[in-house]
Simulated assay, not measured.
Amino acid sequence: MLSGSGTLPRFHPEIPWISPVITRAKEFERGNWGAGAAAEAVARTVTATIVGNVIVAVTVLPQN
Score class of each variant (00 low, 15 high):
residue 46 V to T: 12
residue 52 G to V: 03
residue 56 V to K: 01
residue 3 S to L: 01
residue 18 I to F: 00
residue 17 W to L: 02
residue 53 N to S: 12
residue 29 E to P: 00
residue 58 V to N: 05
residue 63 Q to M: 05
residue 17 W to E: 01
residue 33 W to C: 06
residue 50 I to A: 07
residue 57 A to H: 11
residue 27 E to N: 03
residue 47 T to F: 14
residue 38 A to Y: 10
residue 12 H to A: 05
residue 40 E to N: 01
residue 45 T to V: 04
residue 34 G to H: 09
residue 55 I to H: 02
residue 62 P to C: 03
residue 57 A to M: 12
residue 31 G to Y: 00
residue 54 V to W: 12
residue 41 A to G: 08
residue 30 R to L: 13
residue 59 T to K: 04
residue 14 E to F: 06
residue 50 I to C: 03
residue 59 T to A: 09
residue 15 I to N: 07
residue 46 V to I: 07
residue 38 A to M: 09
residue 18 I to K: 11
residue 49 T to K: 06
residue 35 A to I: 01
residue 16 P to F: 12
residue 26 K to Y: 05
residue 55 I to P: 09
residue 55 I to C: 04
residue 20 P to W: 03
residue 64 N to Y: 09
residue 7 T to V: 15
residue 24 R to A: 14
residue 48 A to W: 10
residue 37 A to G: 00
residue 56 V to T: 15
residue 22 I to E: 06
residue 23 T to A: 02
residue 43 A to I: 07
residue 44 R to A: 11
residue 41 A to T: 12
residue 39 A to H: 03
residue 55 I to T: 09
residue 5 S to H: 05
residue 7 T to D: 00
residue 48 A to K: 05
residue 54 V to T: 04
residue 23 T to H: 07
residue 4 G to C: 01
residue 16 P to T: 04
residue 25 A to L: 13
residue 51 V to I: 15
residue 3 S to M: 03
residue 21 V to Q: 11
residue 41 A to D: 13
residue 15 I to T: 13
residue 14 E to Q: 14
residue 53 N to G: 15
residue 11 F to P: 00
residue 1 M to Q: 02
residue 63 Q to N: 04
residue 40 E to V: 00
residue 25 A to N: 07
residue 39 A to T: 12
residue 42 V to W: 11
residue 50 I to E: 15
residue 41 A to F: 10
residue 51 V to M: 15
residue 59 T to L: 09
residue 18 I to Q: 15
residue 18 I to Y: 02
residue 44 R to S: 05
residue 36 G to F: 06
residue 23 T to D: 14
residue 9 P to I: 01
residue 25 A to C: 13
residue 47 T to S: 12
residue 63 Q to P: 02
residue 44 R to C: 11
residue 21 V to P: 06
residue 19 S to N: 03
residue 13 P to F: 01
residue 17 W to F: 15
residue 40 E to W: 02
residue 13 P to N: 01
residue 51 V to F: 13
residue 1 M to R: 14
residue 10 R to W: 00
residue 32 N to S: 14
residue 24 R to F: 12
residue 48 A to S: 14
residue 52 G to L: 03
residue 56 V to W: 05
residue 59 T to G: 06
residue 24 R to M: 13
residue 19 S to K: 13
residue 32 N to E: 09
residue 2 L to M: 10
residue 27 E to K: 02
residue 60 V to Q: 06
residue 54 V to I: 15
residue 30 R to D: 14
residue 9 P to W: 00
residue 35 A to H: 01
residue 53 N to T: 14
residue 21 V to L: 11
residue 6 G to A: 08
residue 17 W to G: 10
residue 37 A to I: 13
residue 40 E to P: 00
residue 7 T to R: 13
residue 39 A to K: 03
residue 39 A to R: 05
residue 26 K to V: 08
residue 15 I to E: 01
residue 14 E to K: 12
residue 34 G to S: 10
residue 1 M to I: 02
residue 4 G to Q: 08
residue 2 L to W: 01
residue 38 A to Q: 02
residue 61 L to E: 09
residue 21 V to D: 04
residue 11 F to C: 08
residue 31 G to N: 08
residue 9 P to R: 06
residue 26 K to W: 06
residue 27 E to D: 12
residue 34 G to E: 10
residue 40 E to T: 00
residue 61 L to P: 06
residue 27 E to S: 06
residue 7 T to I: 11
residue 53 N to P: 03
